[in-house]
Design a protein around this nucleic acid. Sequence first.
DNA 1: GCCGTTTTCGGCCCGACTGTTTTCAGTCG
Length: 572
Amino acid sequence: MSIHNSEIADTFEKLADLLEIENANPFRVRAYRNAALTIRGHARSMAELVAEGEDLSKLPAVGKDLAAKIHTLVKTGELPALKQAEARTPGALRLMLKIDGLGPKRVRTLHQVLKIRSLRDLERAALNGRVRSVPGFGAKTEARIIDQIGQLSEVETRSGRLVAEEIAQPLVAYLQTIRGVKQVTLAGSYRRRRDSVGDLDILVTATRNAAVMQRFVAYDEVVDVIAQGRTRATVRLHSGMQVDLRLVPQVSYGAALHYFTGSKAHNIAVRRIAMDRGLKLNEYGVFKDEKRIAGRTEQEIFAAVGLPYIEPEMRENRGEIEAARQDRLPLLVCGKDIRGDLHCHTKASDGHDSLEEMAGAARAKGYEYLAVSDHSRRVTVAHGLDATRLAQQIDAIDRLNETLEGLVLLKACEVDILDNGKLDLPDSILARLDLTVCAVHYKFALSRQRQTERILRAMDNPNFNVLAHPTGRLINQRNPYEVDLERLMRAARENGCFMELNAHPDRLDLTDEACLMAREIGLKVAISTDAHSTSSLDFMRFGIDQARRGWLSANDVLNTRSLKALRRLLRR
DNA sequence: GCCGTTTTCGGCCCGACTGTTTTCAGTCG
């Protein structure tokens, strides 16, 4: 199996950590990290680019040397430079960087002075009181090492969107009740609408800063105050979520919002542009010499550096700055563009609500259409429909449509793609549907080639319309199955098929990178909720967020079409 | 190690907070 972009990025980050502990040239360290960012966020897999003979040094932050290292990783799965670094510096030292207050310099000191080579070494030294004997270390650092060393692990913990919202919204509401508070804004990856959130960054403007800080750290859910200053505090909540609060003056609000929304890579790129123009950009504003020339709003900040406004969802330094400079930023799809939902379930299979209830909820959202797509027979746990029961549902939808006003229910089915590439129901019944939503629900472990061929074969069926949750991933629960997504996308476009962006916050499948790829290929995407109840039709907003991160505009999205245009597009 | 519309050498983002100091280096975002 070929190496994933994330594995290449991880390798570079590992090497960067070790080099940093070795006190290597900090810019060289940064070069590895920047390249890791590029690779992690790239729509195409490095392995494929190598196979196609692409010149990798054309990628941003990748030069001749790192291009060669990517080649080596793709060809051999290993990186000699990392092996060599690990021979000099024990790999376990990397994990110690995760202890609060320990960075590369101090880890290096521990390694050199106390001969620490493993986490066990470190724990023993801390328990014996030897850490505090090292110059620059004290009792607090030692206590923190003892406290945190047991919980270190390789895996990064990020919360899903739904969990992040459940934690963030009550906190924001609480902050808004504090006297003197004017604005409370969630920044960071939450504002960029990433599919998962590592910590929360909250920006506050207020008239009584000291009091606001006091009330923030006194929030019910706070279990640990990690840092607290005049303008900035960091706490950990009961849920484990870390929250950073920043108090900023009104004149700097836009600059601070831009700064704390990130991403870091985007910020650095914008700051470079400011520097090129002889300006200084920081979280307080844009400055010409000592004079602040912008700061109050983000629009002001962008204008001051000569750029049009860039939506937060795009700020990942993956081409948005160049696009902005050339005035070719896409107009991103938004909620009001959506005219219907093309994937939902009813009580007929594993949904919670009836046909009538789902129709009512869709009408209340102002939709023109709702495709009812219960499972097919193979998904027995979901009480999937066989041809007879699907025929009954088709009739029921026809009858209901006669009574509905302003909304049309589309006759659909989430048809299983069998492991031989056949569809789970006979063509005769599928042909009676307005559309099929086809999906893989078992045999996730097929080889990349067989999985790809399975789905390609399914697309050959003229009744195939939309590939649902195209990679099967469940955020934090299940990895995507191995599949050549690009090949599927190209085939889908050729065949007049579409791909779903499943809007369920646990899925968000397609990823943002995959949306970018679909856009490039010219394949239209259906943003669908896969709702199993009336209330989960609301998940549409998560799908829209994800689509916006993938630069999709209304034109790139299937369900922004009128019913008439949609029917035309569904004809193969 | 990367990068270039002043460049192939000489730059590379920047401020707040902490702990351990006694004026600041290291960490963090």
